[in-house]
Design a binder for these strands. Structure first.
Lengths: 215, 215
DNA sequence: AATTAAATTTAGACAAAACTAAAAATATTT
DNA sequence: AAATATTTTTAGTTTTGTCTAAATTTAATT
């Protein structure tokens, strides 16, 4: 598998978690910053290789084999992210770009040794689950901050949007993985949420609340 | 720079250490397992980019810029090798292939963090020097085992041939980086060398002796 | 010095992965 | 249901890095 093919597989995997009944050509093009016609070409090739099932105009889905391959790529990506944060002191907003490259290094021995070296982490620095060697994923129950009722104390366990911009904004508010968040007040009119983090009161917009997973 | 261009630069660098007055097209083709015509094409492109000076039929050499680039690639390669051996328990014969891939990950921050994490190693697992951030290389004085006189005790500090086959052969003889080697007898007729390693007598062929650096 | 051999370059072609522009299929409106 | 809009596919190019085969230059021999 080429790097390009791997990137397609990965994107199809992520999109199929949201739309399990078939992923759109355009959606893939959007994620990969390429053109729909290029996607069509690649889908044919991937179908040839039996990693996706593809019918003209009907979108694609992963085959069992394709799913396993995709999980391996995600596994590599997330393990490297853990490495960068835990061992090389990167912050959670810096790791994605580099992991995009590292994820394509394919040695099984490398990735399993890395996994052991990191003590078999179940989640990456953004709270996303890391598939194990067999592709099994430990599901974590989590809810969006926006869905939590007033008064409760919850813990930040992940982000939906893991863009550097969002993560840096969270840093500015002293919110990070594991932060305790107490919901003080929810304003129904403009959906602002007043919370307490680090013994300080903070106002969070809805845009933040719908992108923050808590438990 | 593409991966392919980096591979050419790296090979030209290694070859220019042996033939500083210009590297042959054929030599490059041999190292990269490609054809001379492909090399010619690439040399033109690299000359365009000012990383090599190239004159038809005269071979190539690196420009100052090209030399720095090449050293960066070598630096990355060797740092990853140290990482694999020191942190992930790889053996010295397993690391080259994987480092061939890892060397193309280009984040400066990544490589400098890795360097610090590994405590700024000066040599890789085969005894080859690791350029620092500025491209400076710490030279180590070393001689081939074949050049040492009878009677002396020396220490293995590197290998000239770092192929897996050779390294595994050395492992079988219990010779590794840092091994003390006492030269007991040199046979002039067939150039076999009797040495003592690990309190055991071993006979080494000339092929071994001309590929083992000692101090 | 002429001839042969070896190394190198040119010319033309190919595969991968992208693109543009146009055509076809599906969805959505009116 | 017809018209329009959107999505997807096809057809034909482009770029990168490779190849083969032929031509050219340099090196080695006789």
């Amino acid at each position: 598998m080429t790097i390009s093919e791997e990137n397609y597989l990965k994107v199809i995997y992520h999109l199929s978690l949201v739309s399990p009944k078939g992923v759109n050509t355009n959606a893939i093009a959007g994620m990969l910053d390429t053109k729909a016609s290029s996607v069509t070409d690649m889908l044919k090739k991937l179908a040839e290789k039996d990693v996706v099932t593809y019918k003209k105009y009907q979108g694609v889905s992963l085959t069992n084999n394709g799913l396993l391959q995709a999980k391996k790529i995600v596994r590599r990506h997330r393990l490297w992210e853990v490495f960068l944060v835990e061992k090389l002191q990167f912050t959670w907003d810096e790791v994605h770009e580099i992991a995009e490259e590292l994820e394509h290094i394919k040695s099984e021995k490398l990735i399993n040794s890395l996994d052991a070296y990191l003590d078999f982490p179940a989640f990456d620095p953004h709270g996303d689950p890391i598939p194990n060697e067999k592709g099994e994923i430990k599901k974590q129950e989590k809810q969006l901050l926006s869905e939590m009722p007033t008064g409760v104390v919850c813990k930040c366990v992940g982000v939906k949007d893991s863009s550097a911009d969002f993560l840096q904004y969270l840093d500015k508010q002293k919110i990070t993985l594991g932060s305790e968040i107490k919901i003080l007040e929810k304003e129904t009119f403009d959906e602002l949420i007043k919370v307490e983090v680090d013994a300080k009161e903070v106002i969070l917009s809805n845009k933040i609340a719908v992108n923050l997973y808590v438990q």
